[in-house]
């Protein structure tokens, strides 16, 4: 081939987390997740945006991959997909339908062809299927999720008329943001009661500073200040802000600062302007920024 391949392409079943994702635990969530996984109890991650839910799942996928090979060689042998635990992430959005998850017929020049959706592939491969922001998906998705989350552990594909029993390693993990008083986007009880729930919130100042420093590579003083900024801005939640500043935002600010952008400017573009469009709130946040950063 003439052109050098500059990207890495793989089947989603083959996506393993191979390097340890940086994650600082808040309490015993790692332990709970491990236990739940061993018992194949589906997991619900609750918490505002940018509190590390996705990172946590990645971390756990990595950890369990290692764990499976290390602790249960027997299990690994029976796992047809290989020794490691694949992680299949689906970001849900409001147009995401059941067939987007399960699969559909596609038309091509030769006629129709069935394509498995990501959920089906995860069920077959025996990996973790992580449905991010599950409430955003259309309601019909819940119907297919339910049988996967109880003792049946099966996926029915009505268009094919088949039922697939999940491979042994399969586990459903969903996340949702209890968010801001939105009655239509609440998770139904019949759904939520099928999961063990782990709550996520913003890490406390010191830990957040550590995370920011690690992720952005900025110096610890800047990281501490960013963490303080995060803390202060979160005080405005429900008083003009719908969501507090995510750790991610702060990390971005830290990265920009590391690149030599001035501290105030970095905070402005990655935090102030990102978090709200209300000029007055922006102004207030700006004042906090200019207090904390010289």
């Amino acid at each position: 081939m003439a052109t050098e391949q500059k990207y890495h392409e793989q089947n989603i079943e083959d996506h393993y987390v191979t390097e340890e994702p940086f994650y600082v635990p808040t309490s015993d969530e790692i332990d709970i997740f491990e236990s739940a996984y061993r018992q194949r109890v589906p997991i619900l991650l609750k918490g505002p945006t940018g509190t590390g839910k996705t990172r946590f799942v990645e971390h756990m996928a990595w950890r369990l991959s290692e764990g499976i090979t290390a602790r249960n060689p027997g299990t690994a042998a029976t796992n047809g997909a290989g020794e490691k635990l694949p992680l299949i992430t689906v970001a849900c959005h409001e147009d995401l339908t059941a067939s987007d998850l399960v699969g559909r017929y596609l038309l091509d020049a030769d006629g129709t062809r069935w394509i498995d959706g990501p959920l089906t592939r995860a069920v077959k491969a025996g990996g973790i299927c992580y449905l991010d922001e599950i409430v955003e998906a259309r309601k019909d998705t819940t119907v297919i999720i339910h049988p996967l989350t109880d003792h049946r552990r099966s996926l029915t594909i009505d268009k094919l008329g088949t039922t697939i029993e999940a491979a042994d390693g399969f586990l459903l993990v969903v996340s949702y943001n209890p968010g801001y008083q939105n009655a239509l986007k609440d998770l139904k009880h019949s759904t939520r009661q099928r999961f063990v729930a782990l709550e996520f919130d913003f890490p406390e100042e010191e830990r957040e500073a550590k995370i920011i420093a690690h992720e952005s590579g900025c110096d610890s003083d800047t990281a501490e200040r960013l963490a303080r900024l995060g803390l202060k801005i979160r005080n405005l939640r429900e008083h003009g802000l719908e969501e507090g500043a995510s750790t991610r935002m702060l990390i971005y600010a830290g990265r920009l600062i590391k690149e030599g952008v001035s501290q105030r400017r970095a905070c402005q573009v990655s935090v102030t302007w990102g978090i709200t469009d209300d000029p007055q709130v922006q102004r207030s946040i700006d004042e906090v920024v200019t207090s904390i950063f010289a």
């Binding site: 202060k232 005080n235 405005l236 008083h239 007055q280 709130v281 207030s284 004042e287 906090v288």
Partner: peptide, 15 residues
């Protein structure tokens, strides 16, 4: 006033 008020809220976490 509103800006200062929000500034106070942010700094102290109290209204």
């Amino acid at each position: 006033r509103d800006v200062i008020q929000m500034y106070c809220l942010a700094l102290t976490g109290r209204s």
